[in-house]
Design a protein around this nucleic acid. Structure first.
Lengths: 209, 209
DNA sequence: GTTGAAATTAGTACGAA
DNA sequence: TTCGTACTAATTTCAAC
């Protein structure tokens, strides 16, 4: 057993998840790096690529899963080939204290790939995948607009997905692509920048379903 | 060999990728459904869950990969446990005809998990994962603001990720959660809705690197 | 945390329906 | 095309170091 707490066999179940602030060492991160590129690699091959023994790899692999650091394994598909070539972002303004209803409706919309609650002028961002632009219109008007919790929406289309990493790791910063940072050469033109603060009374939200 | 074109062994290589508009049947979709939830499932178990023979499962599995319908297998991690608990969206306005430079700079930023070109008032949306809010500020001011291609940025923070599916499939619509659609009950309050058109001269963009 | 061997399982290659 | 089976190769498990 490593420093990672796990739902060990024989646990009563009460002491299930304790160490919430676990620290992943370099080996853990290396494992996650390899799995990011090849989620179906055998643990034996994984051990070799990371430079540890197989038994160690099995232990750490299981620990990462049991701890929840690895949530699941999945595939990445070509949405166009799957027949869902249209991607849109829908920014939603939600009526306060109707979040629970909003979440419940979201679960019933299979076109939704991602939904996040944000600061800024809108309250949530939804990413949807559909087969044609008309379906976006249908979704926004027939589904979203009929949800009382939804006060307003704003839709933009995604023209191209430039970059998509399964996930980011702290170890990625260590060895970036090229040119070692170069520090801040002179003052930054702050006029370019604009932060958008959180809307009032929304920072206290937390998962409810 | 199925209806999916593949880089079959013995192919000269010239006739590699032909059928770009391939049609996935129900069995293909079922396979993708299973792999979405468990990307590490063995092909034998996959065959059983889909209800086909092992040989057939191997054929289709390989066909999906060779065709590019499945791009890769990967893991899903808990970003908080990985030490990157802060997620932000940065909306970027890009100076026209400097997209190539913008893309090149993006590749050097390991904190970026996702970047898409969008319609609407901004030109691109970047999703970043960092360890603390200060790092967002650093990214925007030190990195992005120093890119000539970047005209302006607008940053919002993600307070909660409500829903995240690895991908959406056309077959998901067939059997949604509950309540069979109920049709449009009366007219839709269109006043709620607002579409944002594409900025001029940007729809002609395509991948360059 | 590592190595080596046994047991299990996965992947491949056929022929038949 | 799909299925079923036999064959080969690899992986996982378990042991001792």
């Amino acid at each position: 057993m490593s420093e990672i707490s796990r739902n060990g066999v024989g646990d009563g179940g009460q002491a299930g998840r304790i160490g919430i602030g676990l620290e992943l060492d370099d080996v853990h991160l290396k494992i996650l790096e390899v799995l990011r590129e090849n989620g179906r690699i055998s643990v034996a091959a994984l051990a070799e690529r990371v430079g540890i023994s197989r038994a160690n790899a099995y232990t750490r692999f299981e620990a990462l899963r049991a701890d929840g650091a690895i949530k699941r394994f999945t595939a990445e598909i070509d949405h166009v080939r799957a027949g869902l070539g249209i991607t849109a972002l829908i920014f939603v303004t939600v009526r306060q204290q109707m979040w629970k209803q909003f979440r419940a409706e979201l679960a019933r919309m299979p076109q939704v790939e991602y939904c996040a609650i944000t600061t800024g002028q809108h309250d949530a961002m939804i990413q949807v995948r559909v087969s044609d632009v008309a379906e976006v219109h249908t979704m926004v008007t027939d589904r979203l607009a009929n949800i009382p919790a939804v006060k307003a929406t704003e839709t933009v289309f995604i023209l191209d997905e430039v970059l998509r990493r399964p996930y980011v790791l702290p170890s990625d910063r260590a060895r970036p692509a090229r040119r070692p940072a170069q520090e801040t050469q002179g003052e930054v033109p702050l006029g370019k920048m604009r932060f958008v603060g959180a809307a009032e009374g929304r920072a206290t939200l937390h998962k409810e379903g």
